[in-house]
């Protein structure tokens, strides 16, 4: 098999990643995320009009009936309307809003869903989400340090943080709504990207043990070339189903599918360039991966 010189481009890759991260962090710092209802609290009502809905009329009705600050947008089709009330409305008002709309309209207004989230739940959720993410990263790091070696654990986690930040940055830059399903997608991205990184790391470890006379850059190049086929095929199959989900899964699942698409794409890139790059920057060498002779020998290696 032909060995591709992946690591020859590592400087460009670092630059690319740094730019991506800078844009993401910059946007997160200035624009932040467009938090969805799950996180901000508030009320959301989705209704289906029997004929094409006149959004301006709906806005007018709500304005005069005392639902100030309501955001009215069409959702999927021109008959489906999504109305979002800001925080401060009580849990009673979703049902009232539905009555108001029905009275102002001759056809039928069918309820699709009402969601009310109290402010205390939202804050908690954000905390919980962050905690889940840190916990996931921490445990994964321990597992990899145990199964592989500490440098690989750092490499994998750096790649994961990279992916998470880029996906968050994508949501911040595009202003897409960040709701609970996107959080789930983000955690799934951690799982997926990890899967990828481990497959690559596994091969790097194997080749370090097998090719004793070859220098680290070359070992990593060989490993990446060998796993490239698999990496691309898996990314492709996963992306195929995600595209199906994004196109046909309906509005409620759309943001989830897009978050995963971005995540899988960037996860594929990061397992090639970020994780391997981090390994090289930490000066990984074959001594790190020699099969330990005694129990004690490995202990020393795990501690940095």
């Amino acid at each position: 098999m032909k060995t591709l010189d992946f690591m020859g481009q590592r400087k460009i890759a670092i630059l690319f990643s740094v730019i991506l991260l800078a844009v993401s962090i910059g946007s997160l710092a200035t624009k932040q995320l467009n938090w969805g209802l799950d996180f901000t609290g508030g009320t959301l009502v989705e209704v289906n009009y029997s004929e094409t809905a006149d959004l301006n009329a709906v806005r007018g009705t709500l304005e005069t009936e005392g639902f100030a600050g309501a955001i009215v947008v069409s959702f999927g089709t021109d008959r489906d309307v999504l109305i979002r009330l800001p925080k401060g409305y009580s849990d009673q008002q979703g049902a009232q809003l539905l009555d108001t709309l029905q009275q102002a309209y001759e056809g039928t207004v069918e309820l699709r869903r009402i969601e009310f989230v109290g402010p205390q739940v939202g804050d908690e959720l954000r905390e919980q989400g962050g905690l889940a993410m840190l916990l996931a990263l921490g445990l994964v790091m321990i597992y990899i340090a145990f199964r592989f070696q500490f440098k690989f654990a750092v490499g994998a986690v750096v790649a994961l943080i990279h992916d998470v930040l880029v996906v968050l940055g994508f949501f911040s830059v595009t202003g897409m709504e960040f709701d609970l399903t996107v959080l789930a997608a983000l955690l799934a991205v951690i799982g997926y990207s990890l899967n990828d990184t481990i497959v690559v790391s596994d091969r790097i470890r194997e080749n370090f043990r097998k090719l004793r006379k070859v220098d680290p850059v070359e070992v990593i190049n060989i490993s990446l070339s060998e796993t490239l086929g698999r990496t691309l095929v898996t990314s492709l199959t996963t992306m195929l189903v995600l595209v199906a989900l994004a196109l046909f899964g309906g509005e409620m699942i759309n943001a989830f599918a897009i978050a995963l698409l971005v995540g899988v794409f960037i996860g594929t890139y990061s397992s090639i360039y970020v994780a391997a790059n981090a390994l090289l920057l930490m000066g990984v060498n074959k001594e790190d991966l020699m099969i330990p002779v005694k129990e004690g020998a490995e202990q020393e290696e795990i501690i940095p």
């Binding site: 959720l125 919980q128 905690l131 889940a132 916990l135 996931a136 445990l139 994964v140 597992y143 990899i144 199964r147 609970l180 399903t181 959080l183 789930a184 955690l187 799934a188 951690i190 799982g191 997926y192 990890l194 899967n195 990828d196 481990i198 497959v199 596994d202 091969r203």
Partner: peptide, 25 residues
């Protein structure tokens, strides 16, 4: 062995999702 490593780590993430998450998660 590669498959096991890759899946176990993903499983770790899934279990955390289950333990910490609510509702849809």
């Amino acid at each position: 062995s590669t498959i096991l490593d890759a899946n176990i780590t993903t499983l770790i993430v899934a279990v955390i999702l289950y333990a910490v998450g609510t509702g849809p998660i």
